[in-house]
Design a protein around this nucleic acid. Sequence first.
DNA 1: CTGGATCCAACTCGATACTG
DNA 2: CAGTATCGAGTTGGATCCAG
Lengths: 129, 129
Amino acid sequence: MEATPTNRMKDWKAQASDLSQCPVRQVLDHVSAKWPVLILMELEQGPVRFNALLRALPDISKRMLTQSLRNLERDGIVRREVFDTKPPSVCYSLTELGEGFLPHLLAMVDWAEKGMPHIAAARAAFDRA
Amino acid sequence: MEATPTNRMKDWKAQASDLSQCPVRQVLDHVSAKWPVLILMELEQGPVRFNALLRALPDISKRMLTQSLRNLERDGIVRREVFDTKPPSVCYSLTELGEGFLPHLLAMVDWAEKGMPHIAAARAAFDRA
DNA sequence: CTGGATCCAACTCGATACTG
DNA sequence: CAGTATCGAGTTGGATCCAG
């Protein structure tokens, strides 16, 4: 069977409702969650250290930053490098896989920004009713 | 100031950490959540009725389907049409805004699928360590 | 500096029952 | 058919303390 977009989607749907059975969904959930999005956009500027990220993202907690970075690292989207200095420092950066994802993320942000007038109008109309 | 991607991103970051203050993040969260993704892909095939959606998405509950559809409708991504027949029927479809979003969604799915070999390898390597 | 471990409050979501 | 209402289990995430 040819892997047309439509066919792919159907195969996809068959497993997609069971999140734990669909690898694609797992990755998508990791990258689209609240903090990973912001982390990825920080990393686009170049390699960053842990505490720098912590400062750059004013409202994230250490717990969530660590957890998000671990997910991204495990999926091969972010690279973690430990330098055995004193005190120790850890540097995070995008892998090639991660760099390949950023355009899609930015495209969605762009779509959302360009659509905001429509969205705001829709919300106002909806809330009136 | 020119609205380059970089500049836009900086403006963005200023508010992004406070989810309730960033409209873009709100929309992104709505569309990237677990069920909305699947709903949107169903809707791509054409208008669907409530119960049809319920059947198409085996594991979704009425509660979540209603809630997800309401969010999408409020953001102007999904159109809801009520036909006053007996029994009543409600038809959901993509708005133009929603159709404009789907390519981005599909692109991300595509990226995830194409990257799965890398991701699986990364996960295996990570779990060994 | 870079985390791990634990506790606890808040929110999420599914199941169930009910309505026009 | 297309929802709404309510409740309880489960999950999430922030705060705090500890460690290499």
